[in-house]
């Protein structure tokens, strides 16, 4: 993706804020497990953040960290990239009682599942036995596999549907709002150059990859060179990431500033 999923914009929020907001409408306690060095947006005092200290041991090790931090018997687990997660679905899953997970196209959706009591201890035992798949934990808890079509509260796009590519993320955005836009502004030398060419320096354009957005300006501006943002510029995405990779996706409402690479001085 080229960007941390947690920080990707999702209609006025970041993705992690969106998911936490959905969960908070259903449960009293939300724990976010994140990597050792990823800073997160401010999620409020009532959200606990724990670090995955053993990321190299696979996804179960990260889940164990979360289970250890959580106090409830039953825990709903989701990934950060869950744009279509809804509160009704989470409620329905809890209502099933005990460990359960959707079954979709033959796949158990372990990152959209409820884990039962004692999950932290069981996860630890499994890890000690060399097992690192979340599914092993669900199986150890005798989980119910629920066929996707049995779930009455699932929206048209599946709650477990995430994204691992820029195209999938942009497709998710367009399925919600086909006309979603972002703002691109040229600063410094780029703005001066645009002025010379009679082009505007700020535009609202449909969401897309950075390359899609920059292609809307005249080539003469030289924003792109050899398949990347030209060396003289950097793209600042939402005031956070500084990038040159044109395949990076830009989300709804985001502001992209094309700045001089020689910033500072």
């Amino acid at each position: 993706m080229g960007r941390a999923k947690a920080w990707l914009p999702w209609f006025g929020k970041t993705m992690v804020e969106h998911v936490v907001g959905v969960l908070q409408s259903v449960v009293n306690e939300v724990v976010v497990v994140t990597s050792a060095d990823l800073d997160l947006p401010v999620l409020g005092m009532d959200v606990r953040i724990v670090r995955d200290r053993e990321a190299e041991r696979g996804p179960l090790a990260g889940l164990r960290e979360g289970f250890e931090a959580a106090s409830a018997d039953a825990t709903f687990v989701t990934g950060t990239d869950a744009p279509f997660l809804g509160s009704a679905f989470v409620e329905e899953m809890f209502a099933r009682g005990g460990a359960c997970a959707p079954l979709s196209d033959g796949h158990v959706q372990v990152l959209c599942a409820v884990y039962g009591p004692g999950a932290a201890e069981k996860a630890q035992m499994l890890l000690a036995a060399g097992k690192s798949r979340p599914r092993d934990l669900l199986e150890s808890q005798g989980y119910q596999a629920i066929a996707a079509e049995e779930l009455v509260s699932a929206p048209s796009r599946a709650p477990w549907e995430g994204f691992n590519t820029p195209e999938a993320y942009l497709s998710a955005i367009r399925s919600v709002d086909a006309k979603a836009t972002c703002v691109v502004e040229l600063l410094g030398r780029a703005a001066k150059q645009a002025q010379k060419l009679g082009a505007e320096s700020t535009r609202e354009v449909p969401v897309g990859t950075l390359g899609d957005l920059l292609a809307t300006w005249p080539k003469k501006l030289g924003l792109v060179d050899e398949g990347r943002v030209a060396k003289r510029y950097l793209a600042s995405l939402g005031g956070r990431d500084l990038v040159r990779d044109l395949s990076i996706p830009v989300g709804p409402g985001e502001r992209i500033s094309m700045i001089d690479a020689l910033a500072g001085g």
């Binding site: 502004e185 600063l187 410094g188 030398r189 001066k192 003289r232 600042s236 005031g239 956070r240 500084l242 502001r255 500033s257 700045i259 001089d260 690479a261 020689l262 910033a263 500072g264 001085g265």
Partner: peptide, 17 residues
């Protein structure tokens, strides 16, 4: 950057970041 805009070109870029 320095000859065309000068260091004050930093201001808006810094603001955006």
């Amino acid at each position: 950057k320095y000859s065309e805009i000068g260091t004050i070109g930093n201001l808006l870029a810094f603001d955006r970041m």
